[in-house]
Design a protein around this nucleic acid. Structure first.
Lengths: 237, 237
DNA sequence: GTCTTAATGGTTGTACGCAATCTTTAAGGG
DNA sequence: CCCTTAAAGATTGCGTACAACCATTAAGAC
């Protein structure tokens, strides 16, 4: 049945579409592609050495992920979420993460605990020196947690939501607010092991409030025209 | 910048793809297309009087919705979730609905309250006579609730999840267990108006436990080989 | 008779081309 | 000078054709 003499490597990855999709996603999350910018199918196709068909498919998928906006007969644009939409995304993330800890608390295997503590160590290592790496690891921690639930749907939703959070933070967050507090991660692990659902939930809630609130709510809140102009008006005195 | 003088009418609906998508979704949820059945692009295209391109696109989207499974180089199939996967979907739904009531409790406008009570009346009307209509209305109730949150992401996720629940129920549920208890819906509305988050949450949790548990967990639970065989063994005495 | 291997049929993966639509630019009238 | 209207340009929407791949069946060897 199986044909092991095939390519020794993996399934060769699901063809070009996915490759383009991941590449674009990375570019968007890292803000190499600014929010609101146009994404013509032609250009993308040429860039990746493929035809419009592939580019189009990748864009469609990214659209359902919420990273690009698709306007009928007008084309694709990098998503440009408003602050309100951004808050919505964080609200959903909080709820999803709450589901994660609810299912994990008290149910961690020793293997899983070891994995988490290992990740924590890596986070601490990276915290002092490598900014980009630290941010990446902080995200991985949350992804690892949800993967441990084994709930495929939950994994998909939270993965998607987290990447959207990254986009929102990139737009409205300050340059590099250390997204996650490592100490908070440690406390969460401890509470999970202890099996205290309520405590873990509130810890996670607090943790995400920190992330969202610190970086998102404070800074360029609404930035209404009046506010901007009044701050300039002061200079006229 | 904005061009309000555009077409006065609606956006004319987003082209054929969505139409095919909607039609297929309906067919799958209503079990007109049995789980596991093949969905060749050609056939679908011909059925809807369009080309493979459209069919393919619709299938892709339904795949991310979880209603069809896409096997590389092999084609599309109507999703055939295992009982475990089905349970996962219900777990996620519970979590999402919990988010809904958390945001709605105590924040309903009089307009919204009126809408909900109107829906309740319709449910009661349909309950006695029209089965299919009753089931549809029961689903609408939950959809209406999430729409009232105004959180687009939450709306998308829960809509998707609810349709997947329908598929699961169609597969593993008994013929037509009345999916939702109307009385339970009434209690939920009351608790929402009262603004009692905890009570609403537990009501909703209980409500969905009823739906899932009654129709899904009891009946063909695991059905391990031993169980089946032992029940046959009795006949040999 | 069974296993291996080749050939065939069918379906997906991808590229490309034409038509439809939107945007922009240019021209004309008030 | 501005606004309205027409034409040109560019991009998406969609169909179709060919190539790649998988599954099945047929043929051959042991």
């Amino acid at each position: 049945m199986s044909t092991p003499q095939k390519s020794p490597e993996r399934n060769k990855t699901q063809s070009r579409t996915v490759k383009v999709q991941v590449a674009l996603r990375q570019a968007i999350i890292e803000q190499r592609l600014a929010p609101g910018i146009r994404l013509p199918e032609d250009t993308i196709g040429e860039s990746f050495g493929t035809s419009r068909t592939i580019a189009r498919e990748a864009l469609q998928r990214l659209a359902v992920e919420g990273l690009v906006e698709l306007q009928p007969n007008r084309g694709a644009f990098v998503a440009n979420p408003s602050l309100d939409e951004g808050r919505d995304v964080f609200v959903v993330r909080q709820g999803l993460e709450r589901m994660v800890v609810r299912h994990l608390a008290g149910n961690l295997s020793t293997q899983q605990i070891a994995t988490l503590e290992h990740m924590l160590q890596q986070e601490e290592l990276a915290a002092a020196q490598n900014d980009a790496e630290a941010i990446r690891l902080a995200g991985e921690f949350h992804l690892k947690l949800v993967e441990m639930t084994g709930n495929q749907l939950l994994i998909r939703y939270l993965t998607e939501t987290i990447s959207r959070c990254s986009l929102v933070l990139a737009m409205y967050g300050r340059p590099h607010s250390v997204d996650c507090g490592i100490e908070e991660h440690r406390q969460i692990i401890e509470a999970l092991i202890a099996g205290d659902v309520e405590r873990t939930s509130s810890l996670m809630e607090h943790h995400l409030d920190e992330v969202a609130g610190r970086a998102l709510l404070e800074p360029r809140k609404t930035e209404s025209l009046q506010d901007v102009l009044s701050s300039f008006a002061d200079l006229l005195r």
